[in-house]
Design a protein around this nucleic acid. Structure first.
Length: 568
DNA sequence: ACAACGACTTGGGGAAACCTGC
DNA sequence: GCAGGTTTCCCCAAGTCGTTGT
C-alpha cells in the first residue's frame, strides 16, 4: 500500500457522507490487570485487619489512592463509593463491612505513596526500559491506516477502572467506573482490512464496517451510559479537514454578521415573546461569547448552564450602577463548573426585554422559557447555511485575535516584545471566552524567582554602565585605539544586558497577566491558526515561538496554507 | 414535538518529560 | 548529575449539535 502525501486542500473528498474507504488498525490497548496487594499491606475494619477478596480489594485501592484528596471527605463521594464498593464484595464481606467510617485504608495509601516514590527513584536504565516499552506499544497500537495515510491515533489506551470524579458538584462523584473488557468493545474498520484481534480467549462485542463515522472503537461507559470512542489524533487528515471547515464557516459568518446583528436588533421589538427571547439570547451569544446551553438531565450531572438554559437566579438587573445605565450582572456556573461573572451595560431595549422575561418568575425558572438550543439553531440555520450558536464563539474569538494583533504589534519591537503582544491578543480572546484556570500552585514562588533574576540583572546592568562610563573617560583621556576598543566592548556588554533585562521583564509581565487565564483552549480550538501563521510571517517571528511541536502538527494544514497577507 | 442517542468538539487538571542553572 | 521549575501531553469529563425513534 503506497502512502501518498498531498496537501490537505488538494485531497479528494467524499460527497456521499462517507469518511473513508479503507480503515485498518490493531484495536485498543487494555488497562493492565489488577495486581493484588502484598499480604503485608493490611486493610482494617473497625481496627481489625481483614483480608479482602480480590474484587473488593481492587475497588478499595481506588479509594485508598485518593485519601489525600479533599473529595474523599465529601458525603456524596463517600456514599456513592460505598454503595458501589459493596456491590463488589462477597456476601460475607457485605455483612461485615457496613460503615465506611470504620474502614482504614491507611496502609494501602502508604503503600501506593511508597510505590510512586520508588518509581521516582528508579535508575536511568529502568526508566529507559519503561520508555522503550511505551514506545513499542505506541508503534504497534498508536497508528492506523485510513485511506492512503498512516495516521496517529488519539487515545488508543482504554481508560482504566477507578472512581469517577467529575467536575464541580457532581451527583455521581465516587461511583465506580468499571473495567472495560474486549466484550464491551465495538470495533470499526473496513471489511477488506486486517481486523484487529481480541486478546487471547476473548471476543469483541462486535466488529462493524461503518464508514460514515470516524471512530475506530467504542464502548459504553457505566456512569452516564454514554459512548466513548477511540479516534484519530488532531494531526490526522480527517481532524484537520474538519478543523479547517470550522474556520471557513466562521469566515462565512464574518461576511453576513452585520446583517444578522441588524436582524436580531430588529427582533428585540417583535410582538412575539419567543422571537424577542431568541433575539436577546443571540445577542448574548454574540456579544459575550456564551455557549449555547443545552438542557441537561437534572441529578445526572453538575448544575451548570449556558445561554439558553440561564435561569432567573443567574442574572441581576441594575437600571443604574456606578456611572453606567442598564447593567446586567451575570453569575453562573458554565461548562466544567467554571464560574462566569460579568457586569455589562446593555442597550436599553435589551434591558427592558430582560425585565419583561423576569416578570412573575421564581429564581429557579428559565430566563428564556420560550427558547432552547434546538429552536435557536434552527433559526440560525435559516440565516446562514451551517450557522449554529458555537460558530459565534469561533468567529468572535478569531476576529478578536486578528484585531488585537493588528493593534498591538509594533515593528520596532524585538521578538520577545512581539511575543508578548501575541500573548496579550491571545489573552483578550481567553478572557472573552472565559477560559480560566486555577493559579498554578507554584505561581507566587515562580514570580519571586523571576523577580530575583530581574533584580540581579538590574545590578549587573548598573555595574556594566559604570564600566562603560569609566571606559569612556579612559578613552577621552588617552584617545588611543586600545581604549576605543574597550569602550566598544563595554557598550556591547551594556546592550546585551539591557536586552536580557528587557526579556525578563516581559516574561514577568506576561506571567503576571496570565495568572488566572488559560490560553491553551482558545489557541487550540477557537483561533484560526492561519491568523497566527500569517502574523509570524509578517513580523518575522519563528512559528516555533507560537506553536510547539504538537500544535504545529495539528495546524500543519494552516502552516502550509497561509501567507503573510492572510485575512480571516 | 420532543426525548434519547450518537458522534464529535471543547475543557481544565495533573503526571510525565524536559530543561536549566548550579 | 541533580533539584526544582516549566512545558508538554495525556486523561477523560463535559459540552454542542445532528439524527433517530416515538
Amino acid at each position: 500500500r503506497i502512502l501518498i502525501s498531498r496537501p490537505l486542500w488538494e485531497e479528494e473528498r467524499y460527497t456521499d457522507g462517507s469518511k473513508w474507504r479503507f480503515l485498518e488498525h490493531k484495536g485498543p490497548v487494555f488497562a493492565p490487570p489488577y495486581e493484588p496487594m502484598p499480604d503485608k499491606v493490611k486493610f482494617y475494619y473497625n481496627g481489625k485487619p481483614m483480608k479482602l477478596s480480590a474484587p473488593a480489594e481492587e475497588v478499595a485501592t481506588f479509594f485508598a489512592k485518593m485519601l489525600d484528596h479533599e473529595y474523599t471527605t465529601k458525603d456524596i463521594f463517600r456514599k456513592n463509593f460505598f454503595k458501589d464498593w459493596r456491590k463488589e464484595m462477597t456476601s460475607e464481606e457485605k455483612s461485615k463491612i457496613t460503615d465506611l467510617n470504620k474502614c482504614d485504608f491507611g496502609e494501602m495509601n502508604e503503600y501506593f505513596k511508597a510505590q510512586s516514590e520508588a518509581r521516582k527513584q528508579m535508575s536511568k536504565e529502568e526508566k529507559q526500559k519503561i520508555k522503550e516499552e511505551n514506545e513499542r506499544l505506541l508503534q504497534e497500537y498508536g497508528f492506523c491506516i485510513m485511506d492512503n495515510h498512516k495516521e496517529r491515533i488519539g487515545n488508543f489506551r482504554i481508560e482504566p477502572p477507578g472512581l469517577f470524579r467529575g467536575r464541580g458538584d457532581h451527583p455521581k462523584m465516587g461511583m465506580l467506573k468499571r473495567r472495560i473488557r474486549p466484550e464491551d468493545i465495538i470495533i470499526n474498520c473496513s471489511k477488506d482490512s486486517k481486523h484487529p484481534k481480541p486478546p487471547p480467549g476473548t471476543k469483541w462485542k462486535e466488529v462493524r464496517h461503518d464508514n460514515k463515522v470516524t471512530w475506530l472503537a467504542s464502548w459504553t461507559e457505566n456512569i452516564q451510559g454514554s459512548i466513548k470512542y477511540i479516534m484519530l489524533n488532531p494531526s490526522s487528515r480527517i481532524k484537520g479537514e474538519k478543523d479547517w471547515q470550522k474556520y471557513e464557516t466562521a469566515r462565512r459568518l464574518k461576511k453576513c454578521v452585520d446583517r444578522i446583528r441588524a436582524q436580531y436588533r430588529e427582533d428585540w421589538k417583535s410582538k412575539e415573546m419567543r422571537i424577542r427571547q431568541r433575539a436577546v439570547a443571540l445577542y448574548f451569544i454574540d456579544k459575550l461569547a456564551l455557549r449555547a446551553g443545552n438542557e441537561k438531565e437534572e441529578g445526572e450531572t453538575a448544575d451548570t448552564v449556558g445561554c439558553c438554559s440561564l435561569r432567573v437566579e443567574h442574572i441581576k438587573l441594575y437600571p443604574k450602577l456606578d456611572e453606567q445605565e442598564y447593567v446586567v450582572e451575570f453569575d453562573f456556573l458554565g461548562k466544567d463548573s467554571i464560574r462566569y461573572y460579568n457586569k455589562i451595560p446593555v442597550e436599553k431595549r435589551v434591558f427592558k426585554n430582560l425585565q419583561l422575561f423576569l416578570e412573575n418568575k421564581q429564581p429557579e425558572d428559565d430566563l428564556f422559557d420560550r427558547l432552547n438550543t434546538s429552536i435557536l439553531n434552527k433559526h440560525l440555520q435559516e440565516l446562514m447555511d451551517g450557522l449554529t450558536a458555537k460558530v459565534f464563539r469561533t468567529y468572535n474569538a478569531s476576529i478578536t485575535l486578528q484585531q488585537q494583533l493588528k493593534e498591538l504589534s509594533c515593528s520596532d519591537d524585538n521578538i520577545p516584545a512581539k511575543i508578548l503582544s501575541y500573548n496579550r491578543a491571545n489573552r483578550a480572546v481567553a478572557i472573552l471566552c472565559n477560559h480560566q484556570r486555577a493559579p498554578p500552585k507554584t505561581f507566587e514562588k515562580s514570580m519571586q524567582n523571576l523577580q530575583t533574576k530581574i533584580d540581579e540583572k538590574q545590578n549587573q546592568l548598573s555595574a556594566a554602565r559604570k564600566q562603560l562610563k569609566a571606559a569612556k573617560a579612559d578613552h577621552k583621556a588617552s584617545h588611543d585605539e586600545k581604549s576605543k576598543k574597550a569602550v566598544e566592548v563595554k557598550r556591547k556588554a551594556v546592550q546585551r544586558i539591557e536586552e536580557q533585562l528587557m526579556k525578563l521583564q516581559v516574561q514577568a509581565t506576561d506571567r503576571e497577566e496570565n495568572k488566572q487565564i488559560a490560553l491553551g483552549t482558545s489557541k487550540l480550538n477557537y483561533l484560526d491558526p492561519r491568523i497566527s501563521v500569517a502574523w509570524c510571517k509578517k513580523w518575522g517571528v519563528p512559528i516555533e515561538k507560537i506553536y510547539n511541536k504538537t500544535q504545529r502538527e495539528k495546524f500543519a494544514w494552516a502552516i502550509d496554507m497561509a501567507e503573510k497577507d492572510y485575512e480571516f
